[in-house]
Structure formats: C-alpha cells, structure tokens
Design a protein around this nucleic acid. Sequence first.
RNA 1: UGCCCCUUGGUGUAACUGGCAACACGUCUGCCUCUGGAGCAGAAGAGUCUAGGUUCGAGACCUAGAGGGGCAACCA
Length: 569
Amino acid sequence: MNEPVITPPSEQAPRKDFVRELVAADAASARFGRTIATRFPPEPNGFLHIGHAKSICLNFGIANEYGGRCNLRFDDTNPFTEDIKYVNAIKEDVRWLGFAWAEERYASDYFEKLYEFAELLVTKGSAYVDSESEEAIRTGRGTVTSAGKDSPFRNRSAEENLDLLRRMRAGEFADGVHVLRAKIDMTHPNMIMRDPLLIRIRKASHYRRGDAWCIYPLYDYAHGLSDAMEGITHSLCTLEFKDNNDIYRWLVREAGFDIPPEQTEFARLELDYTIVSKRKLLRLVNEGHVGGWDDPRMPTIAGLRRRGVTPEAIRAFASTIGVARKEARTELATFEHEVRNDLNMRVPRVLCVVKPLKVVLTNYPEGEVEELDASFYPHDVPLTGSRKVPFSRELWIERDDFMEAPPKKFFRLAPGREVRLRYGYFITCQEVIKDAAGEIVELRCTYDPATRGGDSPDGRKVQGTIHWVSAARGLDCELRMYDRLFAVPDPEAGGDDVDFTKALNPTSLITVSGAKIEPGVVTDAAGTRYQFERTGYFMSDPVDSRPDRLVFNRTVTLRDSWVKVIAKG
RNA sequence: UGCCCCUUGGUGUAACUGGCAACACGUCUGCCUCUGGAGCAGAAGAGUCUAGGUUCGAGACCUAGAGGGGCAACCA
C-alpha cells in the first residue's frame, strides 16, 4: 500500500513560541547581520529519542521558517563514549523525521582550531594549566554555599603555561596530570564560572580522529566556540544549560568573535510513562530490558519508527506541545492522539482477529468460498481503494465479541442475537458449543443470504458490527501488543536513589500468536501500516515479518469507549 | 546557607505586551455511524501560587514570601 503524504493541520501554522518570537525579532532587526542559523548538536553516544525530536523540530523548524540554515553537528569531544554507529543512527533518524541539514559538522574537526584558541587564551593570561589532582580541583571549587579557593598553579606565567600546554598536546603527560582551566573567579556565585576546565588529557583513540589527539576539549569549551565558528545565530539548548550560558558568553568573547551567537534555553520534554535520558536508555539496552535501541517500546526515534509511528505524527506532536521555559510533563494521551490522528487519515483498514473463536454457519454451503468487496477506507477518509475478502462456512470472530450472558449495552453477539459481520452478512447465534471443561469452543450460527454486503433489504437494523476472518482462508500471524514501557507516570520520580528499572511495566509487551488475519496482507511489504478494524493501528515488523511468518507491531490502540461503558457498570 | 530559572483549568500551551483568561489534549452529554473508530453538537472545569503595592484597570509591572527545578562530572 502506498500511503499519502499528509501535513497535519497542527503543523501548518506553527505557533509563535518565545524562541520564535526572539528569532523573529532578531531577523527583523538584522541583529546578526547574517542569515539565521541554528544547529542540532547531539553527542554520538546513544540513539535519539522523542525529546531530541522536540529539539530537532525546533532547530530545523526555525531555520526553515526564517530562511536560515540548520547544521547537524556532532558534539564528539569525549572519546570514551562515542561511536560511529551512533552518528549513523542519528543521521538516519533526523532524515526520517523529515529534515535536511545545511552542513554536517563535527566538533572533532575543530580540535586544531580549538587548540589554537587555547594558546591564545593562555597567551592573554585568560587560561592556565592546573596541575592539581582531580580531587584537589574538586575541593578547591568550593560548594554552592561557600567560595572556592585559587589553585596554587593559578599564577603561572604565560610562558610556562604555553610550554605545558604544548607538552600536553605532545603527549608528554599521563591522563589527569594537567588540565587547562579558564582564569575567571574562584569565588564566582555561579559555580560554573569558578575557573572551569577547558581541556583535559585523554590518551584514548577517538572514533573519528584515531590517535591524532591526546587532549580533548570539554563541552563548555567546545560548544560555544563551535557555534561561533559555524556562524550560528541562535544556539538553542535545554534548561539545565542555563548556568553554562555565562561561560558560553565569556569564551566566545575571549576568543574574539564580535557578534557571538545567543544561547537560549527551553524546557526539555518529559513524557508520562517514559524516560528520556540517554544514560538510562542505554542501561535498558545493555541490561536486556528491551530488545535494543529500536525496540518498539523505546521512546527512541528508531523505536517509534519500528512501532509504526510516522514522522508526521511526531512533528505534529512537537508542534502541539509547544516550547516554553516551564518544566512540564506531557500526558501520553497527547502523543497518542497525534499518532491516531495521523494514522486515521492514511492507513488502510484490514480485518484481524486477535483471540479467535470459531463460528460455523450451519446454513452456508460446505466448501464454498466467495469473495466479498471491502473498502480499505471508511466513508470519512478521502481515499479510495478496496480489496476482496474471502468468506466461508467457518469463520473466526473475536472471543470478546461474544457473551453468553451479555450485560446491558453489549451490542455484539449473544445467544439468539443477530449482528453484522463487517462487509459480510447478518448472522444469528443459534447454539453455543462447549468442551468438557465448560469452555466455549464454537458457535453455531445461521446467516441471512439476503444481507450480503451488510445491508438488509427489509431494512432491519442490527446494533453491532463485528470483524471476522475466514477460517478456510485466513492466515496465522503474530501480534506484538506493545504498551507503555513503565507502569508509573514518572519512572524517575525517586531520583537516583531509586532504581528506575523497578518501575518497568511487566506487560509492556504481550505477544499473541495464533491471531487470524485476512490473506490479502501477505503481498504487502514489511513495514506496511494498517488499522485492524476495531482493534488498533499496526505495522508489520520491518525486521521479523515475512510472508510465511507474519508479525505485526501494535502502534497504538483505537480509542475505546466500550471500556468506559463497562467501567461504569 | 550562594547563584540562576520557573509558577495560568486534570495536562500542555495562549492572552495584541495592562483592559474582566483562549486553544488543544483529556473528561462528560447527546447525535450520527456497516469500526462502541472517525465526525458533529454541546457541557463541566482555572479567575492566573500567596500577600502587599502601582494603576481608573494586572495573569502581565514592583516588593516580599511560598513552592518546584538547575548548578559543587577531567559527562554533555
């Protein structure tokens, strides 16, 4: 099936959030004297997640809206944790989300330049080589409520600092022996300004630079300068970097950039029943709590993609949650709404029985199979297309669609009651067959030949329409019923004292084998999305599904007002 | 015993930058329906953390509190 490309209404008119207002003002006043430039700066040490998607939509979105450009820059300054496999995954995810970067950049390409700035700072007396131990540096920094104290190495001469710096680069010292620090103020009220570390020695090979370097810049040092070198105008990051803004400005100014980029912070996404911490997601992967970074339960872009979520839905979601400075949690319902809203308008409907119960139509000719017309789309979806669905004497219907003693408002099948088989006939339940244990194993029903296609010539109505699959022609399939990964809205509520894996939802994946699906789907490529009528949205698993072993991932259930009815009694 | 940020219905965002709070999700009613989906119609739900102040008038401004969050990694 080919899905139409649809732009959700919520994406058509982006709301002016405070960041966009700021950019709009700067664009109008030509404050930077250059085109608006943003960047998305992931560290290649993990997969991108839904929280990154928010940032991607913001950065690329703004660039698009203001005729600017957005770079994809890998903030790869830590050789211990980064890997090329992550850069590849990140690039794929950004593209899949629908964005094109102006340039692909790497902080590791700036090492030489960054080193030159370091010599400049040292020469100016704005930075020095500290030879204290890691421990001494930590204690020397003081605490949030008490001032730090100067390092004994703080007043080395420019010459000595330069000599040491060069020898650091030359590899003369072991890890941790020396470190380059900015010379600012050890009593600064902002902890980050207490002579922050700029460059450290790391005798490790870098996934891109190999062994070319043994000194590596730290985030604060590399980030702002990278922005400045790329001509970024608006450097957007999350709230936890607010305090880093001071060092960002200090450094860019020290390095001599006249119109420095402006860093603006916004609140990161917090989604109920999920976590968005690369460190913790990595742990889920490493400890085998999930099948990998692309496990459909993961909030990663790769996981959502494999689950069947579309990029349009993710973008629409980013648009509706908006951007603000307030730390907030978003309800899962908001996300699910965008997913359903998008899928509803684009995917074909198909019949699949999750928990089959056999129905025998006693008055239907044995051995006969007829092909019934079934539309792929409901009347209110402006798409056309239909297929033939085989109908036969023996059928599967949903176990939950039959009740021997139905409560009030139960519109489905029950003894003596007539319902419509979707696209098929009206059938009436005549007899319930049970096994020795009293379990219902089969229903004997009669069908009304005059209702072929689902309408009765005499105009009689049925209250319920249920889905079904021909027992003679239906195919077996596996259904992976995914649910929220965590059992509680805020899995990180207890902080680091509480093991967040304790909050994992034990039923986040329920595998159903022996489900029955109409045969037409075998010819569709893996990765095809459907709505299984009355059940939910599904996508055939792109890696495990094959014609001889169909596997479908549940993307999201349909809204179910019936559960509310029974909940109320 | 510090610095910084935040505080609007259940949730997320708005409010032309001072003129009696809007949109979306969710919830509830009803209608409609060959998906108990979708759609349609409607409803409930905050007086904007608190207390002062400025003003004819404040969610927006000022002051003081309270509550929440961030910062003491040679992580980003």
